[in-house]
């Protein structure tokens, strides 16, 4: 997630809040969540690239764009959901969802998502 922070607040907040944010993030986040975050960053970059390609060059096979872009977005939000569920800080919010259950849900959702993506791609 860190890479995304630079964009919107840079205009207003200056660098000091960001620095502290980065610091806090590094300190309090477990490696596991960092794995998730790096995955999220990858997905976000991939989505941005596709979106730019669509806007700047062509959106002609619109269904392909939607499929590609939606696969990024969908995977992103599913992963973000997983992140929220396994985050120990959120334990009390997800009483019924254990991390294992969360991962199973995540895998199921992703598989369904990819099924529709490939159905829509061609």
């Amino acid at each position: 997630m860190p890479a995304t922070k630079t964009a919107p607040p840079a205009k207003k907040a200056g660098s000091s809040p960001l620095l502290s944010l980065w610091k806090a993030y590094n300190e309090t986040t477990s490696t596991r969540l960092k794995t998730i975050d790096s995955f999220l960053v990858f997905l976000m970059l991939s989505g941005i690239v596709q979106f730019l390609y669509c806007i700047l060059i062509t959106n002609f096979p619109f269904n392909a764009f939607l499929a590609g872009f939606a696969s990024c977005v969908g995977q992103f939000v599913l992963t973000a959901s997983l992140r929220a569920q396994v985050n120990p800080a959120n334990r009390n919010e997800f009483k019924e969802v254990s991390p294992e259950r969360a991962f199973a849900d995540f895998a199921l959702g992703s598989i369904v998502l990819h099924f529709f993506v490939y159905n829509f791609l061609g």
Binding site: G47, F65, S71, S110
Partner: peptide, 18 residues
């Protein structure tokens, strides 16, 4: 279509990354 290869790449890379 050839114009759509970034999207195909995007979808496949997402799956691979998953």
């Amino acid at each position: 279509l050839s114009a759509a290869w970034p999207y195909y790449a995007g979808a496949f890379s997402t799956s691979a990354a998953f």
